[in-house]
Amino acid sequence: MIMALDESITDLTVAFKVYLEYKKEYIKTFIVFLTGIIVLVFSGMLILRFVILDNYFQFDELIRSILMLIILLILCSIFFLLLSYARTTFGLTYDIMTSGELFTEFRRSITYFKRFWLYFVLLSLPYVLIIVLDQLFTIFILLELIQSTEDNRIFLVPIKIAVYLFDLMLYITLIEIFPSIIVVKKIRQCIIENMIILRQSLKRLFFSVGIYYLVFRGPMFIVEITRILMVTNETTFLFFNIIFAIFAFIYALIGLPILSLISTRIYNTTILKTKAEESESRG
C-alpha cells in the first residue's frame, strides 16, 4: 500500500514537472482545441438561428426538422473530432517519454490526429457520453426548475455523486488504453494491455488517478453541486455555466496533459519495462 502511494506521488510529481518543461507544446495544442470549440459553438448558434429557427427561409416543418437533425449531427461529429484532437496530448507525451527522443513539437499533434483520430473517437466514447448525457440532463432539469414553481432539485445531488463516481471508475479502469493504443495501434491489444496493468498495478492506478481526479475534477464537481443548489433564475444559470466552462477549459489545458503524463509513466514502467526486460533476456 505504502509502496503504491510512493509510486503515485512520483507519478504526479514527474507529470507536473514534465508538463512545466514542455508546456508550450501542450498549450499550443490546447489553443487549437479551444479555437475549434469556440468556432463550433458560434457557427452552430448562427446556423441554427438563421437557417432553422428564423422565418427568413420558408421551409415546411418536415424539411425544417430534417435540416435541424442533419446540422445537429454534423455539429456533434465535429465536437467528437475536437475531443479526439484533445487526446493527441497522449501522442505528444509518447514522443517525450516513450519514443526515446525526449522532445515533441506542436505539429506532431496534427500527425497523431491524422493517424489516430478514429481510435481516439472510439476509445473516448465512454468518457464523452457520460459527460455529454450528464450535462444535457442537468441543464434540462435546471431549466425546467427555473420555470416551475415546485423546487425538488435535491434529488439531483445523489445522481451527480453517482455520475462522478462512475466517471472516476472509468478513469481508473480504462485510462491505460490511451498510451497503449499509440504503441500497439490495435484496439483489442490495447484493451488487453489495459487489463494487464489493471491487474498488476491497481493500487497505484487507484492512488495516481484518484489524486489526479480530486485535483482536476474535484473543483468541477463542487461547481456542479453549487450550480444545482443555487440556480434560481436565468442569470445565475448563465453565471454557473460560465464558471463550469472555465473549469472545464482549465481541465483541458492542464488536466489532460497531466493525465497523459501520469498514464504514460505507468504504462512505461509496467508493460514496456516488462517487454524491454523480456527482449533483453532473449538477447
Binding site: 512520483t10 514527474v14 517525450i96 517519454m97 516513450t98 519514443s99 526515446g100 527522443e101 525526449l102 504514460t264 509513466r265 512505461n268 514502467t269 514496456l272 519495462k273 524491454a276
Partner: peptide, 12 residues
C-alpha cells in the same frame, strides 16, 4: 541503445 531511466523515460 534505447534504455529506460528511473523516471520511466526511454532514452535513445
Amino acid at each position: 541503445r534505447k534504455v529506460q531511466n528511473e523516471y520511466g523515460f526511454f532514452l535513445k
